[in-house]
């Protein structure tokens, strides 16, 4: 079947099998390998992308279901050569080690900050609780998101 969707602001059309998962569509068909795959059961969250502005686990969405919708991936966080404050926060606060869960964590963090520009530690932990990181122990991820929130506030709330 043919599927058309907007990915990171660009319309793409591909011939796919009806059963193709969005994560495989992004990775194998579009070469957007920043989105990862880590489990079969929607538990790990390494595959989180945005679907119409909402973080979703792309291993549990069919590419066909994303037809006609807008998808945003980690590759779109940096814009016009400017890193997103979330990306800077993760570097600055050692919010990553192996980097495998990082894209999903950052997409969730970006969505959280868009909704809640000054989240508490508890709110951040709640927001990322559907995702697993085996390296950081989460504390530095929480600090990374707080860092991003503080630096967005300083920049006048620009996303």
């Amino acid at each position: 079947m043919q599927v058309t969707m907007t990915v990171n602001g660009e319309e793409v059309t591909r011939e796919v099998e009806g059963r193709l998962l969005l994560v495989h569509f992004l990775r194998d068909h579009l070469g957007l390998t920043g989105t990862h795959w880590g489990c079969d059961t929607s538990n790990c969250g390494t595959c989180v992308v945005w679907l119409d502005g909402e973080p979703v686990k792309s291993c549990t969405v069919l590419a066909a279901m994303a037809g006609g919708h807008e998808v945003r991936t980690v590759e779109d966080l940096e814009r016009d050569g400017e890193l997103d404050p979330v990306q800077r926060g993760f570097m600055e606060c050692h919010g990553l080690q192996c980097g495998f869960c990082t894209p999903g964590m950052m997409m969730t963090a970006r969505a959280l900050l868009d909704r809640n520009p000054d989240p508490s530690e508890e709110e951040i932990r709640e927001a990322i609780s559907g995702q697993i990181c085996r390296c950081t122990g989460y504390a530095t991820i929480v600090r990374s998101v707080r860092w991003a929130a503080a630096h967005e506030a300083n920049a006048g709330g620009a996303a």
Binding site: L32, Q87, M91
Partner: peptide, 18 residues
């Protein structure tokens, strides 16, 4: 700060499945 982070935070890490 880590020298490897700039590629990871852009989704440009290169893992085996990539």
């Amino acid at each position: 700060l880590r020298k490897e982070d700039p590629r990871f935070i852009r989704g440009k890490g290169r893992y085996v499945d990539d």
